[in-house]
Amino acid sequence: MLGTILLVLLILLLLGAIPTWPYSRSWGYAPSGAVLLLLVVIVVAVSTGHI
């Protein structure tokens, strides 16, 4: 149950990290890089059995 909630949350964060507005184009890779780092941490935690 918790894994499904985290997966849906990460998908929403990935969609929100896409720079679509003109002011957010200068942000570079920071939003999507932070979401990717969070995704890696959660995948490692799930694969080791902590979540």
Rank of each mutant, 00 (worst) to 15 (best):
3 G>K: 14
25 R>T: 01
9 L>H: 04
46 V>I: 11
46 V>W: 03
12 L>Q: 11
5 I>W: 00
15 L>E: 01
18 I>S: 08
5 I>H: 03
51 I>A: 10
3 G>A: 15
27 W>S: 12
39 L>W: 04
17 A>W: 00
51 I>E: 01
14 L>W: 02
38 L>D: 15
6 L>G: 06
1 M>Y: 10
15 L>W: 01
12 L>A: 12
25 R>E: 00
36 L>I: 10
25 R>F: 05
2 L>W: 08
21 W>P: 00
48 T>H: 07
26 S>N: 02
39 L>M: 04
29 Y>F: 05
5 I>T: 02
48 T>K: 11
26 S>G: 05
27 W>D: 13
7 L>D: 12
15 L>Q: 02
27 W>Q: 13
36 L>D: 12
14 L>Y: 01
16 G>R: 09
50 H>Y: 07
40 V>S: 12
19 P>L: 15
33 G>T: 12
6 L>Y: 09
51 I>M: 03
3 G>L: 14
13 L>C: 07
37 L>W: 00
43 V>M: 08
47 S>C: 07
38 L>M: 13
41 V>G: 00
31 P>Y: 01
4 T>D: 15
1 M>E: 14
6 L>H: 10
15 L>H: 03
22 P>H: 13
49 G>H: 10
33 G>H: 08
18 I>E: 10
3 G>I: 14
11 I>C: 02
36 L>K: 00
22 P>S: 04
24 S>C: 14
13 L>Q: 04
14 L>E: 12
21 W>E: 11
1 M>V: 13
40 V>Y: 02
14 L>T: 05
49 G>D: 05
24 S>L: 12
41 V>K: 06
12 L>M: 06
42 I>W: 00
33 G>L: 06
30 A>N: 04
6 L>D: 14
15 L>F: 02
